[in-house]
Simulated scan of single mutants.
Amino acid sequence: MAWVARLSHVFHELRVVYNARDAASAGVRQFLEEYYSFVKELNPGLPVYVRPFDGVREPYVAVRRSDGSYATRQLTNLSARAVLRQIKELTDVALPLDPVVRRRQLADIV
C-alpha cells in the first residue's frame, strides 16, 4: 500500500462525506476506524476532511486536484477495503502536484 503515501503528492485535499447512522455508510465508518490514522500518518500535510452528515443518503469521497477540479466516487454499501480501492483509483489517474504547492504542504508539518 505504498500508493497511500502518494495522496499528498497528487491532491490538495481529501474529503469523506457519510451518514453516521445509515447502513449504506457502514463501510465508510469501518474505513475511518481502520485506515484513517494510517492515511494521516503517511500524509500529515494533506487536509483530510471527514464529514458525518445525517442528510447524506449516498456516502462519497471527493478529492481536489491541482487544477482546482474535484473528482468524486460514490461509496454506497462498500466495504472498508472497497473504499480504499476507490481512493486508490482516484490516485492512479491523478497528476502530481506542482512542486511549489508540494513545498507549501510540507512546510505545514515542519
Rank of each mutant, 00 (worst) to 15 (best):
Y70S: 03
S69H: 04
Q74A: 15
V50T: 13
T76R: 15
L46A: 05
Y36A: 08
A80V: 06
A62T: 07
G45K: 10
L32V: 00
R85C: 10
R65S: 12
P44N: 05
N77A: 14
G55R: 13
V50W: 14
R73I: 04
A62D: 05
E33N: 08
P52G: 14
L75E: 11
Y70Q: 10
P59F: 01
E33Q: 11
Q30G: 06
Y70I: 07
L42H: 06
G55P: 10
T76D: 07
V56M: 12
Y49V: 12
V48R: 12
R65V: 09
Y60C: 11
V39A: 00
L42I: 05
F31N: 02
S37G: 07
A71F: 02
T72A: 08
P52N: 14
V63Y: 00
D54P: 15
Y60R: 14
D67H: 01
R81H: 02
G45D: 09
P59G: 04
F53W: 08
G45F: 07
A80K: 15
V39S: 00
D67Q: 02
P52K: 15
A71R: 00
R64W: 03
A82I: 03
Q86Y: 12
P47H: 04
V63K: 06
E41A: 11
S66E: 05
L78M: 11
V48A: 11
E33W: 04
E33A: 09
D67F: 01
R81G: 05
G45M: 14
F31V: 01
F31T: 01
R64V: 02
L78Y: 08
Q74E: 15
V83K: 10
V48N: 08
E41C: 11
E33L: 08
T72L: 13
R51V: 10
V48I: 10
V61A: 09
A80C: 07
P47M: 06
R81C: 04
A71S: 03
L42E: 05
V48L: 13
R57A: 14
V61H: 09
T76F: 12
R81L: 01
L46T: 06
E33I: 02
Y70R: 12
N43T: 06
E41L: 13
E58K: 08
L75D: 08
Q74Y: 15
V39E: 00
E41G: 15
L46K: 02
F31C: 01
D54A: 10
T76Q: 12
L32M: 05
G68W: 01
V48G: 09
L32D: 06
A71K: 06
R57V: 15
Y49S: 07
R51G: 07
V63N: 00
R65F: 07
